[in-house]
Structure formats: C-alpha cells, structure tokens
C-alpha cells in the first residue's frame, strides 16, 4: 500500500524518489499544490474504493506519505469492519 502511494507521488510530481522520503511534508514543501490534493483524492478513492469525507481533508491525514498510508489503512480497516456487519 505504501509503495503504491509512493509510486503515485513520484509519478504525479515528476520527482526523483531520492528527493521525497516518507516523512517529507508534501504540501508545506511545495511538492503538492491544490491540483496535487485533488489528484491524490481521486487516486485514493478510485484505486482503493474508499470515500473520503470533507472533514477528513486535513494535514494530519494527507501531509506526508506516512500520514496518507496511516489514513488509508484506517479507512480500509473501517471498510472491512463495515462490510462484515449485517445490513439494517
């Protein structure tokens, strides 16, 4: 999962992997701008079949590759739990 996120970041920012580590602050350091955020949301929603709520859009969840990976893991876990619940 983290590898996919790294791949997405390198590909969309045309950056060399050695220039971005997992803790690099993607927005603070100007690697991602508003277009980067929009692309990132689309990538996560489409490739991992999750829905990102407006309230989840903050730097804690999207600030770095590590933050994105933790957020995604949480979303996938929640999705899995919800899928196991009986329909009401």
């Amino acid at each position: 999962m983290k590898e996919q996120i790294r791949g997405f970041v390198y590909k969309t920012t045309f950056s060399a992997p050695e220039k971005i580590n997992d803790d690099t602050l993607l927005f603070d350091e100007g690697i991602f701008d508003s277009m980067g955020l929009l692309n990132l949301i689309s990538f996560l929603e489409n490739d991992f079949s999750i829905k990102i709520a407006d309230s989840e859009l903050d730097a804690t969840n999207f600030g770095s590759i590590n933050a994105i990976a933790s957020f995604l893991a949480m979303k996938l876990q929640t999705k899995e739990i919800c899928a196991g619940l009986p329909a009401i």
Partner: peptide
C-alpha cells in the same frame, strides 16, 4: 471553497 478550509492546513478544494 468552504470558509473553514484555511483551518485544514491544506490547499483548498
């Protein structure tokens, strides 16, 4: 954009 987007510390959507 939403008025509270400045609080998010991310570029606005």
């Amino acid at each position: 954009i939403r008025a509270d987007s400045i609080e998010k510390d991310l570029p606005p959507v």
